[in-house]
Design a protein around this nucleic acid. Sequence first.
DNA 1: ATACGATCTACAGCGACTGTAGGTTCAAGG
DNA 2: CCTTGAACCTACAGTCGCTGTAGATCGTAT
Lengths: 152, 152
Amino acid sequence: MMKEYSIGQMSRRTGVKVTTIRYYEGRGLIPSPARTTGGQRRYDEAALERLAFLRHARELCFGLGDIADLMALAEAPSEDCAPAHKIARKQLAAVDRRLTILAQLREELARMANADDPGQARECRVIEVLGDHRLCIGAHDLPDGSLDLSGG
Amino acid sequence: MMKEYSIGQMSRRTGVKVTTIRYYEGRGLIPSPARTTGGQRRYDEAALERLAFLRHARELCFGLGDIADLMALAEAPSEDCAPAHKIARKQLAAVDRRLTILAQLREELARMANADDPGQARECRVIEVLGDHRLCIGAHDLPDGSLDLSGG
DNA sequence: ATACGATCTACAGCGACTGTAGGTTCAAGG
DNA sequence: CCTTGAACCTACAGTCGCTGTAGATCGTAT
């Protein structure tokens, strides 16, 4: 027998809110699931995986459009891989930038969170770390709109 | 003589759009700058640093509220450091989770972007990597709303 | 059979921008 | 000086990605 999940079970298993799951369905990011005779949604294992993917990708600030691209990429037939590679490269650049900054921020936050003497907060360098332009590998000098600050 | 910047120069130097800078001012995230007699904004070096910080923090998905907290933390007098530590710890947890997932995703994207044989795309594991729940250190089992999916 | 929590649709509201309209200012060139 | 055009101003409507509510229905445990 194939396992089936209600929308609430999907929500509990992935951490995505019920209303958000329905929203994703409306946006076409997850396929419309089967329904009971009474009209309630019933999901299978594949839908669960797709939703888990969506959740993690969103947590990493990927927009719904980019996520749709990534999903298409993962399911792409082997024929036209050039566009898939282009998407991968684009996402890779964004990921690398975030990784660099996040690693620095992590270090600084850890120092602050674990400092033996709480009184040291006055030496906090969080602002400097996040404000340091040397971390931005040319991103600022690109034409208008090259940096998508609208986030998710 | 102290250097002064117009809002457009601020925008070019930080990559934050002019309209967004005004929006941040309206939200109180950056102080209202001095004005020319004609009413145009003139910023100093400190404002530039603050805005650069804001930009980087936003790129890392921190909400404006959290950013305000971080800024206050960085400027906090040494007296009440306990709340500052709490904020730092909370942000640290979020940063660590993102770092873990991002690192895995980076590896997978790099493999896809650089694969010698583009035909290998069919073996793409991006979905599995991002869908892997073992990466979620207990985050899913926490009470409702423990994961802030609303992003920025 | 009933109760009550989970689900349904539809829609309004929020956070963080983004873009436009319609007007004003500034600085460089004539 | 005066002009001219880019940059700036305010105010406000629109977008994206949710989030919450209202009011009705479903489904399952007792």
